[in-house]
Design a protein around this nucleic acid. Structure first.
Lengths: 125, 125
DNA sequence: TTAATATGCAGCCATATTGTTGCAATAGGA
DNA sequence: TCCTATTGCAACAATATGGCTGCATATTAA
């Protein structure tokens, strides 16, 4: 089987840094990988700080369901909560979103480099 | 409960477009939301086209497990496969990655706009 | 033809995820 | 104080996910 040229690891090219960035990055993407959570992020990035009850009115699920989604987002570091009175207000923390965006930019750059190498190889004299 | 001022929907501000972009966008993020799949993407964006057997050597799971991960990525449109001989070579399709990146950029922009509005409100005479 | 390689497909199992209901607890306002 | 609004917590069911084994199928090479 395969053997031979390998495919990476001890291969002939280096992987981009995010390949080994552990689970933190994957958790950010996974947190964004749900339609309801994506909508919650949209609300939070457009508005400011909202309570769970307020956010619930924007979805078709129960308050407790929204709470679970917010917990997923919070564990990924995408949102934060602040207690004020008897309410718990949620707001976006854009740092992790920026990290995810930089990763996707890195993928695009690597891809461009790979294309350029291929082009140079094909056009070699 | 809550009632009152709403929080969006029929609220006083407009949501960014990605809020209602259906499940396609969420599927892209979900596809990237796994450490193994993130590594596969890293390999593919750095290299070119690899067979399942080759990709398996880069992971700690079985070939069938890798196949399932590739299917998740394929259903999100992140990777494509090409049959050549008895092999099935996989390669990145950067279009969906670019779409995800644009979404994260939009979140960042919305956030900046919201901050600017807040600043203007606080500093109002 | 025969053997070896590469993949496909089905089924199984353990665990995680998503959403619910029900009840308790905390905090504000009349 | 008493009522109400907001949230927290626990248990539960249904489904999805991630990983495996086992076997079948195709394709290349000798």
């Amino acid at each position: 089987m395969s053997n031979s040229n390998s495919s990476n690891g001890q291969a002939g090219f280096t992987l981009p840094a995010f390949a080994e960035s552990g689970d933190a990055l994957a958790r950010i993407f996974a947190a964004l990988g749900d339609p309801i959570r994506l909508k919650l992020v949209a609300i939070l990035c457009a508005g400011g700080a909202f309570s769970i009850t307020q956010l619930t009115t924007s979805t078709d699920i129960t308050r407790q369901g929204v709470t679970k989604h917010l917990q997923v987002l919070a564990e990924a570091g995408v949102v934060r909560d602040v207690k004020v009175g008897r309410e718990r207000l949620w707001q976006l923390d854009p740092a992790q979103v920026a990290l995810a965006r930089q990763t996707l930019e890195a993928i695009g750059r690597e891809w461009d480099v790979a294309l350029a190498k291929l082009k140079a190889f094909v056009e070699a004299p």
